[in-house]
Amino acid sequence: MASTPPITLSSHRIDRQWVRLREQGRTALIPYLTAGYPTRDKSLQALRMLVDEGADFVEVGFPFSDPLADGPVIQRSTYVALEGGMTVSGALALVKEAELGVPVVAFGYLNPILSYGLERFLNDATECGVSGLLLTDLPAAEDPDIERALHASQVDLIRLVAPTTDADRLLRTVDSAQGFIYLISRLGVTGPKTVVGPDLIDAVNRVRGATPLPIAVGFGITSGAQAGEVAGICDGVVVGSALVERLSEGLEPARSLMQELSAGLRNGSDV
């Protein structure tokens, strides 16, 4: 790791997990699944499987009817989850029941959270074991009230940095960020095709220069080999669509991808 964040005594679970990962010299594996997909029960099993197979953090998708930052795979999982009756309170209850033992990041869109009530959400989320919140449609500095409420809570505000985020904006973005930076590896919605090339390395270095926070790279990582490559340049690897796709085939195919990713990261970190 290139830098050490000044947060080693933090009460925030996400920070403590990064300290542990640093001590072990490991790159974090951060899988994503949509709450309630394919069913509530299977979703619960799948979330627990993620931790059994080496997840260091878990991103839980809170379904929204209009997932405009997501590609077809996560869109479909979202519609299935909503049709199965998943709600914000349902997703919180799912996280609570799962007792994952690793930090959980709620991943989603602003409207269901606003509708639930932001303060109420932050209280209930903390109670249910949610440690971070990542909202794809809440860019930095857009809504200072929401940022303030998050900063006053135990729930970390996870920020996205995109290839189009310029230097000034990067500084403003990391300024309000907590937990880690989620670096979007390419333009576009969630789904396949990340290439580890000079652009991605530049992007990671750019973020490194702006913040001591750990950097997780996501959007399009589909295989263990690819995860290993990305692991060489960043602190955490997010895998979403590929895993949701496998889960649509069943729990075991998803498990085998998790095993492949874990192995890929171990090999990648050794390099």
Binding site: D137, P139, E142, L160, D166
Partner: peptide, 9 residues
Amino acid sequence: RYVPETLIA
């Protein structure tokens, strides 16, 4: 501007 970060620029 409640949009993905990618669009802000």
